[in-house]
Design a protein around this nucleic acid. Structure first.
Length: 466
RNA sequence: GUCUCCUUCGUCUAGCGGUUAGGACGCCGCCCUUUCACGGCGGAAACAGGGGUUCAAUUCCCCUAGGAGAUGCCA
């Protein structure tokens, strides 16, 4: 039997983090089992579906590297097929027309709520011999067993049983003749030859209904795996406030696709003590058995940590390809500097956005007074003079190297009986404009003699100017 | 309300009858250090509660509490 899974988002918004993880688990499962990962856009609700959302989902999956193994499938393309199935069900007596109106239904629902019982469509038209009212357009309902129980062996949740009394004769076709989600999903899953349905926990209840639809149609029932949802940091349902952002937002915030994937992968799934691993390893290791049953919370701190670690490991050229365009206008000299200094920036950045701020001083000269107060405080009364003297000794370095720069400056400090910090800190402040910089000898070396001298003497010049 | 599911450090989790309950993030301390980081070392921190079953329960069963989802002519 071939393994086929699908990720089935409805295009009513961006691809949020929970959806991304569902897609990821489907993907990993497919690849692990040498099966196919398919994506079906559930756009039967025309009113709420948008093209932008479709694009956002595609781009999101693309960015994450979770592209499907076949073309995207649109549920709305199969509406005729969905209807055909209902016709057959009607013909074989497994479904029936129901003339109860939405108004009547909601009245009954209210009544049930008052009595504290679960509302269930009371089979009015199921076996009715009455002549249907002419002015009511009927819906089509499926006949579900009234007694007994339904058991699903969920690959994540284990054996889940529900009493059939709880199950409703749910609607297959609306009164306007359009198929409902419940119908479309099942027909499409059959059509796509889906072997495993891996989706969010919120669909577990639907699984029982769909189970009977599969049976009524007369096909093998796919395996189900309902993965727990992701909550916000406060344990509440994910909202925009805490992370239910589109994946493109994470991209904008400077997270790496691989880091986000690694993070998502570890949310609700584990492989022993492994925390950081490649996608290839994830594919090798992935097993639904190791998906936990309990919901998990979004933890940005951990994501950040993971992202930082991915940046550290990342290939320099690859990283540059992301960083450089983020500057917009940038000249070759600045690019060269960043290339040279990239390694020590790496250990300081948690996101790629961070990265650009951290190496901004390679691109732009700091302007005085420094915007960062802390850094400005490093510049003392005597700093301009010291810096000018430093500039003077630097000027005489013949062989420009980090080592020679260090030797020269240290000698200068020694000769004048300065404290190291007294000299080093103002240097850092004036040439980098920040307290979060790599070692000063490194950045002086990268900046070059001329540039360093100009930056160092800026202060004393300002002084004489004023 | 009813149904279904869930419950190990603050968070993500390992554990699958006998462990000093392990790891990771975060937090704290120390070391390294010219800043900020990286790194290294160490620390505090958990089996929701109550009953069973068993020689032995974090692990199996039941109850309670708490949380979540579902209960649509939405998906």
């Amino acid at each position: 039997m071939s393994i086929n899974v699908r990720f089935a988002p409805s295009p009513t918004g961006y691809l949020h983090i929970g959806g991304a993880r569902t897609a990821l688990f489907n993907y990993l499962f497919a690849k692990h089992n040498k099966g196919n990962f398919l994506v079906r856009i559930e756009d039967t609700d025309k009113a709420r579906s948008t093209q932008e959302a479709v694009n956002a989902i595609k781009q999101g999956l693309d960015w994450l590297g979770l592209s499907p193994d076949s073309e995207y499938i649109f549920q709305s393309d199969n509406i005729e097929k969905h209807k055909e199935v209902v016709k057959k069900l009607l013909d074989s007596g497994k479904a029936y027309y129901c003339y109860t109106t939405p108004e009547e239904l909601s009245q009954m629902r209210e009544e049930a709520q008052k009595q504290g019982i679960q509302f269930k469509y009371p089979h009015i038209w199921r076996d009715s011999k009455e002549t249907p009212p002419k002015d009511v357009k009927p819906v089509v309902r499926i006949k579900l067993p009234k007694t007994g129980e339904t058991v699903i062996n969920d690959l994540v949740q284990g054996q889940v049983t529900v009493a059939n009394e709880q199950l409703d004769d749910f609607i297959l076709l609306r009164s306007d003749g359009s198929p409902t989600y419940m119908l479309s999903v099942v027909v499409d899953d059959i059509d796509m030859n889906i072997s495993h349905i891996i989706r969010g926990d919120d669909h577990l209840n639907n699984a029982f209904r769909q189970y009977h639809l599969f049976k009524a149609i007369g096909v093998d029932i796919p395996k189900f795996a309902h993965i727990p949802l992701i909550y916000g940091e406060d344990g509440k349902k994910l909202s925009k406030r805490h992370g239910a952002l589109g994946v493109e937002q994470y991209q904008k915030m400077g997270y790496l696709a691989d880091a986000l994937k690694n993070y998502l992968c570890r949310l609700g799934w584990s492989h022993g003590d492994n925390e950081i691993f490649t996608q290839q390893q994830a594919i090798e290791w992935f097993d639904l058995k190791n998906v936990g049953k309990s919901p998990s919370r979004m933890d940005f701190k951990k994501l950040e940590n993971l992202n930082a670690s991915y940046i550290k490991q990342m290939d320099n050229q690859e990283l540059l390809n992301i960083i450089i365009p983020m500057f917009g206008k940038i000249d070759d000299i600045a690019i060269k500097r960043i290339e040279k200094g990239i390694d020590s920036i790496k250990s300081r950045a948690t996101t790629v956005n961070d990265f650009t701020t951290l190496c901004d001083f390679y691109v732009n000269r700091p302007s005085f007074p420094l915007s960062d107060e802390k850094t400005q405080k490093l510049i003392k009364q005597n700093s301009p003079d010291i810096l000018e003297n430093v500039a003077n000794v630097i000027k005489d370095i013949d062989e420009w190297s980090e080592q020679n720069i260090e030797n020269t400056i240290k000698l200068f400090i020694e000769k004048n009986n300065f404290k190291f910090a007294e000299v080093a800190q103002p240097i850092r402040a004036t040439i980098s404009g920040t307290t979060k910089s790599p070692g000063i000898f490194e950045i002086i070396n990268i900046l070059g003699k001329q540039e360093t001298i100009e930056r160092l003497t800026k202060l004393s010049k300002n002084k004489t100017d004023s």
